[in-house]
């Protein structure tokens, strides 16, 4: 537990040692705002809620979260510091969790900095703040799921760009797996069980349930088990790839 916190602290500070943190946060805030106000028609629709704001989070995370996750392991392997890290008295689990929590906390920080949206909607009307809170939690957990995918894929390559592209693609498939675009591809030949399984993997379906203000156990289990599974794969991938 101590080691996880130490590694997470170092990793979290690492985001701020370069312009990465600043660039990321500014872009994230600008895009969430732009999508909510222009594409989501925040003012025009006449409702005091944040659903046009949250609706675009899966799409933003799809691109931005792999950008946070891509460096986690690829950079360590490229620079050789993984040899340093893995010969310190820490377990692979400590290292994987430490890095994941640092990146997740960073996502949380970026998300928290969207608070002016929440203030704005409360000044303009009388929104259901319960829904807003559950939506924020849902958005944060979904970011964690995207991040666990990105972290795992980052440990498969030394190249951050490759890590980013593959992670973004896998995240895209998970986001879209409920959409006809993806399902059509499978419906012709795959058994119904598989198609149903794919449909149930969709981040969009689970996330939109949460943004309606309902925290359903099955959505919690979905995102939770997805994070656990990808982090488990991450540990295996680090063990296999660290010496290469």
């Amino acid at each position: 537990m101590r080691n996880i916190a130490i590694i997470a602290k170092r990793e979290f500070k690492g985001y701020f040692a370069t312009p990465l943190a600043l660039v990321f946060i500014v872009i994230f805030l600008a895009l969430t705002g732009a999508f909510a106000f222009y594409v989501g028609n925040f003012f025009g629709r006449g409702y005091a809620d944040l659903s046009p704001f949250f609706a675009y989070h899966p799409w933003l995370f799809l691109l931005l979260v792999p950008a946070i996750g891509m460096r986690l392991w690829a950079e360590e392997r490229k620079s050789g510091t993984i040899e340093l890290l893995m010969t310190l008295p820490v377990s692979t689990l400590d290292a994987v969790l430490g890095k994941f929590f640092a990146a997740w906390a960073f996502c949380g920080l970026a998300l928290a900095l969207t608070f002016p949206m929440w203030i704005t909607v409360n000044m303009l009307g009388d929104p259901d703040n319960g829904i807003i809170v559950t939506s924020y939690i849902g958005s944060f957990v979904m970011a964690g799921a995207f991040l666990s995918i990105s972290a795992c894929i980052s440990s498969l390559t030394k190249n951050q760009v490759i890590a980013f592209i593959i992670a973004a693609t896998v995240c895209f498939l998970f986001t879209m797996s409920g959409a006809q675009l993806v399902l059509n591809f499978f419906q012709g030949w795959a058994p119904d069980v598989l198609v149903d399984a794919l449909r149930s993997m969709s981040f969009l379906t689970h996330f939109s349930a949460v943004t309606q203000g309902v925290i359903d156990m099955k959505d919690v289990v979905f995102f939770g088990s997805l994070i656990v599974m990808w982090l488990f794969l991450n540990i295996i991938a680090v063990e296999i790839n660290k010496g290469r």
């Binding site: 590694i7 170092r10 370069t18 620079s79 050789g80 510091t81 010969t87 310190l88 008295p89």
Partner: peptide, 23 residues
């Protein structure tokens, strides 16, 4: 390790503090 890899974005002070924590 060979080539003495260190976290380039850290300062020696920060780096040694990190190592002291882990140790």
């Amino acid at each position: 390790p060979e080539g003495a890899p260190c976290y380039g974005d850290m300062t020696p002070r920060g780096f040694l503090n990190f190592i002291a924590d882990v140790r």
